[in-house]
Simulated scan of single mutants.
Amino acid sequence: MKTFLLIHGAWHDGRVWDRVVPLLTEAGHRVLAPSLTGHGDRAHLLGPDVGLDTHIADVLAVLTEEDLTDVILVGHSYAGMIVPAVAGRAPDRVSGLVYVDAMVPADGESVLDVMPFTQHLIDAAGSWRIPPMDGFFGVTDPADVEWLRPMLSDEPVRCFQQPVRFDEAVVAAIPQTHVHCVGDAPGVARRPVPPGARVWELRTGHDCMVTAPEELAELLLKAS
């Protein structure tokens, strides 16, 4: 049995994994999908001081409070900034990293470094909080849009501005899998992944846990 710790991306909450969790548990694995500070059941904690460091601390707290080991740590989108920092600080608890259509930072980079266009979101917001982007993250089916809508909330600017810190050598020693969501088109150029990392593509939108949960679960099980 493995333990999957599923970390949602910006603007989302832990419920976004609800279609994937039962598929992993039915395969005999333990699955946790917490909401980060400022989201879901922790929405009341949203504030201008919430940042990337806050979310890294959230995930580290789950590892220690639940005494988790042999963890497959899965990060979607913005959570690609979180998972290497967590793995670097608790490598004895993490046996694999999965980046699901996620940012892939180097030590010392912020979201603004990885995806510079996010500065436009900050400028447009004109505040410490950024509303969800239009387009529902590649989710087009009206029923899926209505299911996802209540899970979306504002993201603090500080999450995009704070740099991530981790020991790149420690993280590189942990097996990595990268899942790229490519819609209906072949894969496009992305940031290089570390040598030896597995790369798989899903022909679906960015929020693949909503639009292709069975296919994503199958890849997560292969990654374990």
Rank of each mutant, 00 (worst) to 15 (best):
A124T: 02
E215K: 08
V170S: 09
D167M: 11
P84N: 03
E66G: 03
G108M: 00
D141T: 02
M81E: 03
V21N: 14
L46V: 05
L68I: 02
I7F: 09
P105I: 01
H206F: 00
C208S: 13
I7G: 09
Q161D: 15
E155N: 10
T177A: 03
L202H: 01
F160E: 10
G96N: 06
A106W: 07
P34A: 03
E65K: 06
D92T: 07
T3R: 14
R198K: 13
P194Y: 02
A189M: 09
E66D: 13
Q176T: 09
A124R: 05
D18H: 15
G9S: 13
L219A: 12
F117I: 01
C159L: 12
V193C: 04
G9E: 13
L36G: 08
V98L: 02
L63S: 04
Y78L: 07
R129H: 12
A212H: 00
D92S: 08
D92C: 01
V171P: 06
W11Y: 15
I122W: 07
V50F: 11
R149H: 13
A212I: 00
C208A: 15
D67S: 13
G183C: 03
V50M: 10
P84V: 08
K222H: 11
S224H: 11
E65C: 06
H180N: 10
M103Y: 10
L6K: 07
L63T: 00
M103I: 01
V210L: 00
E215N: 02
P34C: 01
E65D: 15
V164E: 14
P22R: 04
V170K: 08
D123V: 02
Q176N: 09
E26A: 14
G196N: 07
G40Y: 03
M209R: 03
M103C: 04
R191F: 02
G28F: 06
A79C: 04
E65M: 08
A79D: 12
V50R: 13
P105A: 03
P150G: 01
A217S: 15
F160S: 09
L73K: 03
V74W: 03
M103E: 05
A90F: 06
H12Q: 14
D123G: 02
V139W: 00
H180V: 14
